[in-house]
């Protein structure tokens, strides 16, 4: 059996013919394995969903309890068989509950990393490399210009700015799932124990993180009562909101805010300038170039398949290393999703 008979790209996503299931399908399917709760990977409407208990809980918060007909929780390391195909999930270090999907059949093992990173994240379990024949790697930051700096340093940069500009609110765009909670945890680790204000859209996911054992410290809603002097309440404070809210009418309630954005894209000045960011915080939940290439070397698969992101560069690198590699050209994943 060739690896491509075990898993191959289709318009609906990566499909496994012998097991009759998809991994992170972008259209509703009968049976899906979901690597993690980000919206472009985890969609509602599948017949059955196999995922970690954390990912299932996240999907229920985002889509409501009836996001699928059948939930199949599978803890890290537990093994199941689906139509004779062996499946287990391994931590990916991306967000809470994120997993690599290991699929094995007739002696061939394929590991799909989903989104992953290698550096420490206080909100989730660390990535574990798994030996395999084919590694399907993400490549969101698959260009050698992306080397994320030390995360703690970026958190300190933000704290320092609140001290330098105590009269201004610090408004930070961060993805509601994962990035926001990780940023909060890193701020806490750097000694920031004041309340952090959060946009209403983040509350339920923050609550869920707390429930699942990730302490976030004091969080308050970023709302303003219609009283005089209320606006000044946010001077020098940290407010976290989804990136889309940065440019919405919601953002106007804060006095002369310092617009900040926590993302790996902030490493490129043009991207930061385009977004009108004054304080770029380079913090990513995806592997940077060194993490991507080191992981491939460490896992050392017989073949590397590259999916969403900058596939060309990683494939080129693999060729220079004398590795077999190809781009899968899967569609439907957001290039900016973090």
């Amino acid at each position: 059996m060739k690896p491509s008979e075990l898993l191959h790209p289709t318009p609906a996503g990566l499909y496994c013919p012998p097991g009759d299931f998809y991994i992170d399908p972008v259209q509703p399917v009968g049976r899906a394995i979901i690597t993690h709760g980000h919206a472009d990977h985890a969609r509602a409407g599948h017949g059955a969903v196999l995922a970690t208990p954390e990912t299932l809980a996240i999907m229920a918060v985002r889509y409501g309890e009836v996001f699928t007909e059948k939930r199949q929780p599978l803890a890290y390391g537990e093994v199941v068989e689906v139509n004779g195909v062996t499946i287990w999930l391994v931590p990916a270090g991306h967000v809470l509950g994120s997993a690599q999907a290991v699929v094995e059949h007739r002696g061939i093992r394929i590991v799909t990393t989903g989104d992953y990173k290698r550096r420490r994240d206080p909100t989730c379990a660390a990535f574990e490399p798994v030996e395999c024949d084919v590694l399907i790697s993400e490549a969101t930051f698959g260009l050698p210009v992306f080397i994320h700096p030390d995360t703690a340093g970026e958190a300190r940069k933000l704290i320092r700015s609140t001290e330098q500009f105590p009269e201004r609110a610090h408004l930070i765009g961060a993805y509601a799932l994962g990035k926001a909670q990780r940023l909060i945890c890193h701020l806490r680790e750097e000694g920031y124990d004041k309340p952090i204000y959060i946009h209403g859209a983040m509350k339920r996911l923050c609550d869920l993180y707390e429930e699942l054992g990730v302490p976030l410290g004091p969080l308050l809603p970023a709302t303003i009562e219609k009283e005089k002097g209320e606006k000044d309440r946010f001077a020098g404070e940290i407010i976290i909101c989804p990136p889309s809210a940065m440019q919405s009418t919601w953002a106007r309630r804060f006095p002369d805010p310092v617009p900040a954005f926590a993302s790996g894209w902030m490493r490129v000045r043009q991207r930061a300038k385009q977004r009108g960011v004054e304080l770029p915080i380079i913090m990513s939940d995806h592997a940077d170039w060194e993490e991507l290439t080191n992981t491939v070397r460490e896992v050392d698969p017989a073949e590397l398949w590259v999916t969403h992101g900058r596939e060309d560069a990683l494939v080129r690198w693999a060729e220079l290393e004398g590795r077999r590699a190809k781009a899968l050209h899967l569609v439907g994943y957001e290039e900016d999703a973090e």
């Binding site: 050698p144 210009v145 490129v268 000045r269 043009q270 560069a313 080129r316």
Partner: peptide
């Protein structure tokens, strides 16, 4: 120090030669 193809891909993405060079330097 840097493969030409990887540099070109990077520069196209970053949009500025100086910045691409500064970021890519191993």
């Amino acid at each position: 120090r840097v493969d030409e193809v990887l540099f070109d891909l990077s520069r196209d993405y970053v949009g500025d030669t100086a910045e691409a060079a500064a970021l890519i330097w191993p």
